[in-house]
Amino acid sequence: MGSSIDFSHYLKQAGPDLLHLDLAIEGISCAGCMAKIERSLSEIPQVTSARVNLTDRRLALEWKAGVVDPSLFVDRLAELGYKAYPFEIAGAEAVEVERSRALLRRLGVAAFAAMNVMMLSVPVWSGNGSDMLPEQRDFFHWLSALIVLPAAAYSAQPFFSSAYAALRARGVNMDVPISVGIALALGMSLFETASHADHAYFDAAIMLIAFLLAGRYLDQNMRRRTRAFAGNLAALKAETATKYVNEDEIRTVPVAAIRPGDIVLLRPGERSAVDGNVISGRSEIDQSLITGETLPHIAVAGSAIYAGTLVRSGALRVRVSAASEGTLLSEIQRLLENAVQSRSRYLRLAERTSRLYAPVVHVTALLTMIGWLVAGATVHDSIITAIAVLIITCPCALGLAIPAVQTVASGALFSSGVLLNTGDAIERLAEVDYVLFDKTGTLTLPELDVANAASVSPEIFEMAGRLALSSRHPVAAAVARAARAKAPLSGIEEEPGQGVFGEVDGVKVRLGRPSWCGAEEAARAIMASDPEASVVALRHGDTCQVFAVRQRLRPDATNIIAALGRMGLAVEVISGDREPAVRAAARALGITQWRAEVTPVDKIARIDELSRQGRKVLMVGDGLNDAPALAAAHASISPVTATHVSQAVADAVFLGDQLAPVATAVRISRTALRLMRQNLWLAVFYNVLAVPVAIAGLVTPLIAAAAMSGSSLLVMLNALRARQIRRHV
């Protein structure tokens, strides 16, 4: 039986005889690394192009098909000190990338046009009414029109199409006043130029488009980046499955290449990456990631296995089923769909603002026109003044107010170990006042740990650790990890289902079941005091030691729970595990509110109950059984070790062993929301100053341009303050 990594799933045909591969790379931090990698890979003669993307930490490779094996590249990168994992750009991410490219192109066109038109406008502003001849002014206006009209027709398309879509759905969004403003400003300017008037607003219109596109691009870029990080995360986990092809061949393949109906092998210590049914084999399985329960079950032929299940003792052969077939999964799926639907009713801050904003602006413009008509102005002058009102109120600062803060805040979140899944996560995280924690894998670390390590002598512990390296059993693996063992002992054999044994310096040693090592007494004593623990015994000659292995609370959990309390958040534990385990964890953390043996349906019911009381719930959980609750809660966070389903519905994912990112996420989001509100008020304040001037008919293109760039700059600078939050955490 041979086993090799299969790259074929990731290879793409880039041209005749050209192959393309994308790799996610761990450890790139600077431009120097980038040059080093590109140079080193280009030295391989068949490679035609090697490009590193520093922001996404990715490498795109192209080479002539035939001789070179892709694993050569991975090896070469390993020599340089970088771990590389093949990955596939998800469909959703490819769409985001394309959108963000298109926006950047439009932004470029608008910005260049704006610069050139500004250059033409400055002489008009400074020359108007003094030494400029009317013919020259007209000439400059026509030139501006020549640049602006095609540029605007191209770069303002996103606004026009979005406004059109909103109007067709009988709604109003921010793009409706924007589109009306731009169209009217251009139309009026053209008319005024043709009739040799003093003022034309081409410069204001194109500058407006450029600023708004900048806001749009920031927003889109944030979305693209979160997608890219999520994609890298999936690749860095390097999830592979051992596919059983036939008697003589098994193959290690990426999970994405596994199809329903395939047979995969699960060996002891392995976590299943697929759903399916056991065909043959018998093993203890740990389903804590799925149900929250920490006690192991027995799987035999016919048992259902879900992705995330840890195989503990024996090997299993599993036939992969489509994701929705299992009873538990279809139940979860149904709950999820309901929950996601109810969440989509949430209105973002930007949407709420624009609902209020569009009618106010349009009514103001209309009233201005009517007012001037009543006051006896000509129809032409009244319309011009009304349009000036529309131009000056166009939500330039408003369009930047929220995306600018979001971009800065998501950067701050990322550097403290929190990745955002959704764009409005910041707003929702900032509003929460009640936190529901799952226990298993969320408050506790997902990996097992030795609980009585302090009472074991260092020599015995070290020996147990080195012995444990020869076993694949998860409990043994926990002992090896806790003892920080590096060097396995030689001549160790495994007794299936019992443990490992061998000889050290002429003394017989065994590590395994207490009954097999003659340590039942000690084991029973530990089980009595700590029913949650799994036990493993070491016999060394006549001495005997029993290790209690169990899930441990995250190291900073107590502090963070206290910190959340100080931030005014109520905390509750809600777990699918049995009562004693949940009670013990809650007591250790000083949490008075807890519920045990909760089903996914009950978790949602609890969230509904809390929201009826007016609480905004933050759900923190990792298991498959938490997924519906994660989707139903006002906001949700998952650890990076969570199941795929949970991670996909959570608003944010946090990295590392610490619980601190949860508190940090709430804190940064609160500051960010405050800055967003401040920015909105700044924009309103600007309008309060500018609109009376516009209504009075005193706005010149110069004032419009200065007001727009001034307010945009103010909002951007205010957004940058979100970077300072990090220091206070």
Binding site: R51, R101, L104, R105, G108, V109, F112, M115, N116, M119, L120, Q136, L143, I147
Partner: peptide
């Protein structure tokens, strides 16, 4: 003022050149 006849097209050409360079770099995957 006749100098404008040269300067204006020159300025616009330079602007357009910048734009073309920007789009070119975008297309080449930077």
């Amino acid at each position: 003022m006749e100098v404008l006849v040269f300067l204006v097209p020159l300025a616009i050409t330079l602007g357009a050149l910048g734009l073309v360079a920007f789009l070119w770099s975008l297309r080449n995957g930077q």
